[in-house]
Design a protein around this nucleic acid. Structure first.
Length: 320
DNA sequence: GATTAAATAT
DNA sequence: CATATTTAAT
């Protein structure tokens, strides 16, 4: 059975984007006991995910990066965008360690697309995009890499019956495998500017269309409080969950916690579907930060009034 | 083991 | 900056 395509899917798009409530019964919260204690979190191992019955619809699974190895992120302020005269902050170790793998969450990607859309293809260069995004911690390389893939995605869509970009997989003769599946999921998360597909560049100063003017000041958009709209998310929910749970990366905790991966020792990775790689002992991990709400762009320093020049920061605690 | 996503190198 | 290649994660 096929579900009807929603012409104005992008209207609800953002609504369906963050479905935290039904989010991920599969993903487990990984957190170090030490950290949990630090946060006064009742160490509830709860090794009983029981898919199907959601324990508390208010708890978010803090998904950290599944990585093998304790990688601390070097808060690299080398971002050209940040113009902050640090008088002297010996606080953070300026260790230049390898940067953890960045996980592009739908939210992040949305910002990315928004920035690109408002910059125009011409000015949509990694550097500019990065600057406009104002995401602390995001490097030009990150954007560049993602931009590359994004362009490829657009290109691919052009070749295929595009339109809404909802499900180009419906192509008759086209071995689409799971290639598009994943890519699509992520990229489709954000409304692809028509200009991109049409190959029409509106220009930065040109008519901004009716797209929401992305401002580096945290725009007020979807309401994260009431997610109820449960569409026909079924198996699709599967990967969506994975993507979404990555959303939890924004959770502010851990002083050095970076974007996605940054778990001090302790084997994370508990969200495996049918694949097995590194099974970890469920003991000691799996904590649900009670009272932990999602933190999207809007939740952070959203000071719309006055000079809200605060940028989005990927890291939780803006170290002092 | 295969595929994709991100990083890295050119 | 763009593209190709490599590395890592799913």
């Amino acid at each position: 059975m096929r579900e009807e395509e929603e012409p104005s899917w992008f209207a609800r798009w953002e609504e369906q984007l963050p479905p935290p409530e039904e989010l991920t019964p599969l993903s487990q919260s990984l957190i170090t006991p030490d950290l949990a204690l630090a946060f006064d979190i009742p160490a509830v191992p709860n090794p009983n995910p029981t898919p199907g019955s959601n324990p508390s619809p208010g708890s978010l699974h803090t998904h950290l990066t599944p990585s093998s190895g304790p990688h601390f992120d070097p808060s690299d302020p080398s971002a050209g965008a940040s113009s902050g005269p640090h008088g002297g902050c010996p606080d953070e170790p300026a260790r230049t360690l390898k940067r953890p793998r960045l996980v592009w969450t739908p939210q992040l990607h949305k910002r990315f697309v928004d920035a690109v859309a408002h910059l125009g293809i011409k000015n949509a260069v990694p550097k500019t995009i990065m600057q406009l995004m104002s995401v602390d911690g995001l490097t030009r390389e990150n954007v560049a890499s993602h931009l590359q893939k994004y362009r490829l995605y657009l290109k691919r869509m052009q070749g295929i019956g595009n339109g809404g970009g909802s499900s180009p997989s419906g192509n008759g003769s086209g071995p689409l495998s799971a290639s598009d599946a994943d890519t699509e999921r992520l990229f489709a998360s954000a409304p692809v500017p028509h200009h991109f597909l049409t190959g029409r560049s509106p220009g930065p100063t040109a008519a901004p269309d009716q797209y929401m003017p992305f401002v580096p000041a945290v725009p007020a958009m979807s309401t994260l409080q009431h997610h109820h709209q449960q569409m026909g998310l079924n198996h699709h929910q599967f990967y969506n969950q994975q993507r979404s749970n990555a959303l939890g990366q924004f959770n502010g905790f851990d002083h050095h916690g970076f974007l996605a991966r940054s778990m001090p020792a302790q084997p994370p990775q508990a969200i495996s579907m049918h694949h097995h790689h590194r099974m970890v002992g469920p003991a000691g991990i799996g904590i649900m930060p009670s009272g932990n709400g999602y933190m999207d762009e809007m939740d952070m320093g959203s000071r719309g009034a006055g000079g809200a020049r605060r940028e989005l920061t990927l890291f939780p605690t803006g170290d002092h």
